[in-house]
Design a protein around this nucleic acid. Structure first.
Lengths: 223, 223
DNA sequence: CCCGTTTGTCACCGGGCTGTTACCGAGGCG
DNA sequence: CGCCTCGGTAACAGCCCGGTGACAAACGGG
């Protein structure tokens, strides 16, 4: 599950990101409004956490831009006592809000409630280069080829790699994100999963062009 | 639209009641928890506003009693800073909450959002493609075929799928929407219900053309 | 209260997913 | 050269999950 967190307050942003990562959400961070809009288009998150007060584009404007093309759940962050903000945010299509300060537990409970309500059906597929991932259908399409059906784990792995396209992701991190393992040691699982995924997405699985082995991990190469 | 308001604070209760009445909701008032449960059973409201701190039965207990038999939207009222309360309330199946004090405008906005989510305020389309649902008659018609009578649960399931025609709806979401289950334990129920519904609406139930199994859920395929 | 309908539960099957073990080959190093 | 490590590959077995049938429990109208 991918979550976009947009807040210009670095400390709060990292706290939220850490909390969500601990709960095995895949977190994408934005430090201002325009970055939030760009990352939303690039990453197609399943949920967006938006601070209202941001330099450049405000949370309202970001919310509006998102709502123009998606019904993804949006949670707004506000300072206490600004009721006008709440009414306006809900009017723009935000699904919920939190009043700062809030506890990590509260944040998690609300986010889970939102995702439960929304049924987490991100209609928009995730894409990078020639690779298009359809999370709701559990399929991936390479270029013009036919869509390939993926298993749950394969989907998670590919989602992680796609979120870091052209960058190496360490085996350690993949283990944590895909299986939730806290300790290392279980590399065999990853080896097998990579192998099975290559069988499905590589033209020549023996000579990987997309899912490459890199130092201490793997990397998804897109054009 | 009928709303049950339960709060032992007479002043706040009347303010809420007045606000809702102005917005042309029909309001039923309860001044303690046991009255709330009794009135809920007698009146079958479309939405419940529950104060957590009440003499006798607390808002938690009332919420629990309501959730044992209904999926009606529940909004909890809490005092500021009691984050534990929020987590507990959402865990018990409450759909939203408000922190006292709040403005009438905020209350109205949140209640409307809740009703919109529950699909009670929108004119939910009861038809898509060749499939036509008659909610009052509990029947469904496929193309020119004769209308088929459905049970309550079958109707709810089909209604959910129809509202998301051609899109996968996760099992988790279906469980919540049809039975109101909070924990995702019981897949057997869904399996059986899908099976029974297929017997009624599919030409060849062994090879489903309409109600197809999809990754992590089901999908209603319409042309 | 009785009886048919509806709903929940149990058992079983079969297929695909996943974890495990074993083995191979390449490369590093004494 | 022998040993070790590490990634890739294959094979296998257990497990999970969806489909199905049978039956019990709960419900509901006469």
């Amino acid at each position: 599950m991918k979550v976009l967190v947009a807040d210009d307050d670095a400390e709060l942003r990292e706290l939220i990101a850490f909390t969500l990562a601990q709960a095995s959400y895949l977190v994408i961070k934005a430090s201002d409004g325009s970055a939030a809009v760009r990352l939303f288009n690039e990453e197609s998150p399943d949920l967006v956490v938006l601070d209202i007060n941001m330099p450049g584009l405000s949370g309202f404007q970001v919310c509006e831009a998102i709502r123009a093309r998606s019904r993804v759940p949006v949670m707004m962050l506000t300072v206490r006592g600004e009721e006008e903000d709440l009414v306006r945010a809900l009017g723009l299509g935000a699904d919920d809000y939190l009043t700062k300060p809030f506890s990590p537990r509260t944040l998690l409970a609300r986010i889970r409630a939102l995702l439960r309500r929304a049924g987490m059906e991100s209609t928009a597929p995730v894409a990078a280069g020639r690779i298009t991932l359809d999370l709701s259908e559990h399929t991936v399409r390479i270029g013009d080829a036919e869509a390939v059906r993926l298993t749950k784990l394969e989907l998670r792995l590919l989602q992680m790699l796609l979120a870091n396209a052209n960058h190496t992701v360490t085996s350690e991190r993949l283990l944590v994100q895909v299986w939730g393992h806290r300790s290392g040691g279980d590399r065999q699982l990853l080896k097998q999963l990579v192998h099975r995924l290559r069988q499905k997405i590589e033209a020549d699985p023996a000579a990987p062009a997309l899912l490459r082995t890199a130092a201490a991990g793997y990397k998804l190469v897109v054009d």
